[in-house]
Amino acid sequence: MRQELGQQIGEKARELLSSGVVECVIGYERATDGVTARPLFVYGVEDVDRLIFDDTCIHNLTRYLLNRRDKNTAVVAKPCDSRAINLLLNEKQIEREKVFIIGVACQGVVETRWNQAGETLQARCQLCSQHTPVVYDFLVGEAPPEQPPPEAYADVLEMEARSAAEREAFWQEQFDRCIRCYACRQVCPGCYCSECFVEQLDPLWVGIRIAPAENQIWNTIRAFHLVGRCIGCNECERVCPLNIPLSLLNRKLEKEVWELFGFQAGMSAEAVPPFATFEKEEKLGIGE
């Protein structure tokens, strides 16, 4: 089944490349550990056979569209990843006609580490109810039968139940070990500022020290800049070399936005995001 998906993607890629519809197809191939997957940029039909798809294809490839804004590109997108395309379309970062989306109906992906692929689905996949991409031009695979998803925010609720002091201590411990490698930013489809606040010198928002105070500012502002924009692909948490639970922070903010505005990022390219508009009667969640 999984092997078939890779073949179907490969066939589509061959067709798109040979007809000149796109100049590059971004998909997955087997990584050098022989177990996990890695992104693959296919420019010629001779390489389409390298394309694969299976439950180790965890990367959100839509991030790469930002490097190819002016070139026709096809991208393999899982349902979660596809939401990033809507985000980028909504924010006028990419043009729909330049992107060909090879959507994959997804049954979930597994946790992977170098040389290791887990047996069970990622926690976020177990909670996922979006098994078909929200936007695509061509679809491969079959979505599993719909099931009512379990409570998606159990860990967030558990955090909310803790005292402010406990939460502060928890996050301080997490952020203390941050080495400011910015992998979380670099991998995020929503983090595309040409100059990130953390590198701005004038004004200087945060200094260069890799130290608790600066780490806390970096991690907090990173999360806040994604409020109402994070599409939940979890790439930031996956790439963190020090296992900082960034999705817990992201999903807390996602939950707030859902409760206040009934909004989920990337579900449509047209919906006006809550932080791009203001309505008099809307709840602010402050001082109420």
Partner: peptide, 25 residues
């Protein structure tokens, strides 16, 4: 570099990468 996301992980986990920045705090 198509695939590279240009994070600093490789340099920061590396025992021999020694680039640094200097500024005032």
């Amino acid at each position: 570099a198509d695939r590279c996301i240009h994070c600093n992980i490789c340099a920061y986990v590396c025992p021999t990468c020694y680039c640094f920045d200097v500024r005032d705090y």
